[in-house]
């Protein structure tokens, strides 16, 4: 799927900047891309005259994201991953939950971690524990920035 731009989505918004949703129209488009909000959160779009725009926005954004993406905003493409384990080692929550990770070893079998290498590919095991799931820590992007094969990106 091609990456959406906020200007592309803004075309179908009311462009009134009424801030009833809490943002300007351009800001609302930005939050639509990161799936923080849905088009239905805009009260003006629910009015009868905007039904076509609403349908178009829903078509562009596609169906609701998977649970893990919706919680963390991380888009993981396992086919790109080469299992180097850098994301597992740099994740702060992994460090808290498994002592082994600190010295570069993979987490032990029973450790309850956020990210782990499973069958040679990265897997987001516990999205609820990810720092990005907490709105106040949404800025954490260590695994995204340090991945050498760009297997992890932001939606």
């Amino acid at each position: 799927m091609a990456k959406l731009s906020m200007y592309q989505l803004q075309k179908y918004l009311p462009k009134t900047d009424c801030k009833k949703c809490g943002f300007s129209c351009l800001g609302f488009a930005n939050h639509l891309i990161s799936r923080d909000v849905r088009p239905e959160d805009c009260p003006i779009l629910l009015e009868p005259g905007y039904s076509e725009s609403l349908a178009k926005l829903n078509e562009l954004l596609g169906p609701g994201l998977d649970f893990e993406k919706e919680v963390t905003g991380l888009l993981i493409e396992p086919e790109k991953c080469n299992g180097c384990g850098i994301c597992v080692v740099v994740c702060e929550i992994n460090l808290e939950k498994s002592q082994e990770v600190e010295s570069g070893r993979g987490p032990r079998f029973k450790d309850d971690v956020v990210l782990r290498i499973d069958n040679g590919r990265i897997k987001l095991v516990d999205p609820q524990s990810c720092r990005r799931a907490d709105p106040s820590d949404y800025i954490c992007r260590a695994c995204v920035e340090l991945c050498p094969t760009t297997a992890i990106s932001l939606v």
Binding site: G83, C84, V88, G106, P107, R108, D118, G120
Partner: peptide, 24 residues
């Protein structure tokens, strides 16, 4: 690497953790 966890069932590797694409 000495941190590989292997689950074997019926004399076949069922799943494996902490291994890279070269090791798998």
């Amino acid at each position: 690497c000495d941190d590989i966890d292997v689950v074997v069932a019926d004399n076949k590797v069922k799943s494996i953790r902490n291994v890279c694409q070269w090791g798998i």
